[in-house]
């Protein structure tokens, strides 16, 4: 695409030495008020042609601009209304126009902004896995549980820039699974099946092909949920016993591993 950076020249006060790569002049030159809100215009008399009063334009030109302003205003109003209804609690309007709002907002304008609200997460949810392996001697054995979330936690500790692979992959993958399965581990629609495959592949990636010296044939996943104890100054008493949710055994194949890790 051609460069269309629209300002031709001299629009902004560009400072005394543009040849030295002045991003914009150190000395404000325009008569702009020193203290202005973000919405304050730039220097009021920028460059010649654009500063010409638009009222001197021909009627069609004025009409085009007027229509554009109207379109922009309506578009902004619609967009912000949809944004508002996207984050608002279910209400009269979202119930009446839910489909239209979803149609507008998804897939590109979704907002996931309920940060730690209404309550922050108050439990550590660890995803653990064990494997059924075929030993070199030809027998089968079951490994102990491996805490994959603890591994993530260890990778995040003392890490100023945690990776999404450590912080989000397993954590959000498990959330996805939980959100698309019922209490009896039955998948809800396509997302349920996808989430199952996703969690299986995350676990397969982390365990690898070999575990405890044998070849992994099946894996089992469980979540261990431990409530965070209330603060010491609180008189609240809660049970901090760990609660387990154990999934059925899954067969893993080499297709569940990335190509680099396949035999």
């Amino acid at each position: 695409m051609a460069d269309t950076e629209p300002e031709p020249a001299g629009r902004e006060p560009t400072g005394p030495e543009p040849q030295q790569g002045e991003p914009a002049g150190p000395k404000p030159t325009g008569p702009e008020p020193g203290e202005s809100e973000p919405a304050e215009p730039t220097a009021p008399a920028p460059d010649g042609d654009a500063a010409e009063p638009l009222t001197t334009l021909s009627l069609p030109a004025q009409l085009i601009i007027a229509v554009a302003i109207a379109v922009a205003a309506v578009a902004a109003a619609i967009h912000l209304s949809a944004a508002f209804l996207n984050v608002s609690p279910p209400n009269t309007l979202t119930k009446r126009h839910g489909a239209a709002i979803d149609d507008y907002v998804y897939p590109e304008f979704e907002r996931v902004w309920k940060l730690f609200a209404p309550n922050p997460l108050q439990q550590n949810i660890a995803v653990q896995a064990r494997a059924q392996i075929r030993t070199p001697e030809g027998g089968t054995a079951t490994t102990g549980w491996r805490d994959l979330s603890a591994q993530d936690g260890a990778d995040i500790r003392h890490n100023p820039l945690p990776s999404h692979t450590q912080q989000n992959e397993l954590r959000r993958g498990w959330e996805f699974y939980v959100g698309s399965h019922d209490a009896k581990e039955r998948p809800q629609g396509m997302r349920g099946n996808l989430s199952e495959q996703y969690v299986r592949r995350i676990v397969a990636l982390r365990l690898g092909r070999e575990e405890d010296g044998g070849t992994v044939e099946r894996i089992q996943v469980r979540s261990a949920t431990t409530p965070v104890a209330p603060p010491p100054w609180s008189d609240e008493k809660i049970d901090t016993k760990t609660f387990y949710r154990t999934l059925p055994w899954w067969t893993v194949t080499s297709a569940d591993l990335p190509e680099a890790k396949r035999p």
């Binding site: 950076e5 300002e7 020249a9 902004e12 560009t14 543009p18 040849q19």
Partner: peptide
């Protein structure tokens, strides 16, 4: 419009 190579180029080039 500001703080960009575009702005620098515009300032150099075409005033």
């Amino acid at each position: 419009q500001v703080w960009s190579l575009d702005a620098r180029r515009a300032a150099r080039g075409g005033a």
